[in-house]
């Protein structure tokens, strides 16, 4: 079932009184299926945050529609199902985390006992229990980020929208959030997030949309990275000539040129055969890669290729 759907959405901004209108998002369509994680990636200013703000009804699309389970978002009730973490959340300076969470619970019409319990769970989960009575002004960037996540998740939403959840987090914090997202997925939540940290996106997302200059450049599925073939190793060798290529072909899964060499995907159980063949041909192995094609490569490749959109 499609939970979140962007249907040919465009957004233009008036930047100033006499300035040109800027086209932030153009004819963007994508769907997020129930229980999956969808990642939006793209360079700075690609329109990721604009898209998310339209999803939440903070701004309205100039054209097109955003739908939640087939409904257009306007009823307040629908928002009870959404948890949102903005980019660099600014929380109230003089409140403490307990008060902030109490507000979140009250606003979502939860019972005080329920939200207190759930708040404690989330704070424990994100290592904020010690800080719960400190004013938020004294929080570090990473702590604010985690506090924002608590705020977003308190009412147990079924749809979670994160804008850059990993920014400002230290490695421990990142791991915490990473595990939390995985757990949420296991609970069957639908998650949409955008991030610059491609490594996380790659590991977490079921589908990835690459946005550039407000347009969807390409959508990737997990299969595009071949990471699911976990029993494969990727060898980087000297550039193969045609005869060696032909000799190796039956042994390997696939090959492609990479820099000055060739990258071979080798099934783990055929590794020794391939190795023997390489030895026999006298082809040097330069190293190995952890993945067939990294999201980073794809990202850079597509961004370079993509012509700027006309506004």
């Amino acid at each position: 079932m499609v939970v979140v759907e962007c249907d040919r959405v465009s957004k233009k901004y008036n930047t100033g009184l006499f300035k040109k209108r800027i086209c932030a998002v153009q004819n963007l369509s994508f769907q997020v299926k129930e229980g999956t994680i969808y990642g939006l990636i793209g360079p700075n200013g690609a329109g990721k945050s604009s898209t998310i703000r339209m999803l939440l009804g903070l701004s309205r699309p100039t054209k097109g529609e955003v739908r939640f389970r087939g409904n257009v978002l306007n009823a307040v009730d629908l928002r009870a199902e959404i948890g949102y973490l903005p980019e660099n959340p600014y929380l109230y300076d003089h409140l403490n985390l307990n008060e902030l969470l109490a507000f979140s619970g009250e606003a979502a019409r939860m019972e005080p006992a329920v939200y207190r319990l759930r708040g404690r769970e989330l704070m424990a989960r994100l290592d904020l229990l010690d800080a719960q009575k400190r004013p938020l002004r004294t929080f570090s960037k990473g702590m604010l980020q985690r506090a924002g996540i608590c705020f977003a998740l308190l009412h147990d939403p079924s749809i979670i929208v994160f804008d850059e959840p990993m920014s400002g987090l230290d490695p421990v914090g990142r791991k915490m959030v990473f595990d939390l997202v995985m757990e949420l997925k296991q609970q069957g939540k639908t998650i949409l997030f955008c991030s610059h940290i491609l490594n996380d996106v790659e590991r977490l997302c079921d589908r990835i949309g690459l946005i550039h200059k407000g347009q969807m450049v390409r959508e990737f599925g997990r299969e595009d990275f071949l990471q699911s073939a976990s029993d494969a190793v990727f060898l980087l060798t000297d550039r193969l000539d045609e005869s060696s290529q032909r000799a190796l072909e039956p042994l390997i899964i696939q090959s492609r040129p990479e820099g000055e060499g060739t990258l071979l995907a080798v099934s783990v159980d055929r590794y020794l055969d391939v190795n023997a063949c390489l030895q026999q041909k006298g082809i040097a192995v330069r190293g190995c890669r952890s993945e067939w094609v990294s999201l980073e490569d794809l990202f850079v490749h597509h961004i370079r290729e993509h012509a700027p959109c006309a506004v």
Binding site: R53, A80, P86, Y92, A152
Partner: peptide, 14 residues
């Protein structure tokens, strides 16, 4: 100014 309102309005508050 500081976009805290984004957080607040993401809750069921009209």
């Amino acid at each position: 100014d500081r976009k805290t309102i984004h957080l607040v309005l993401s809750k069921p508050i009209s």
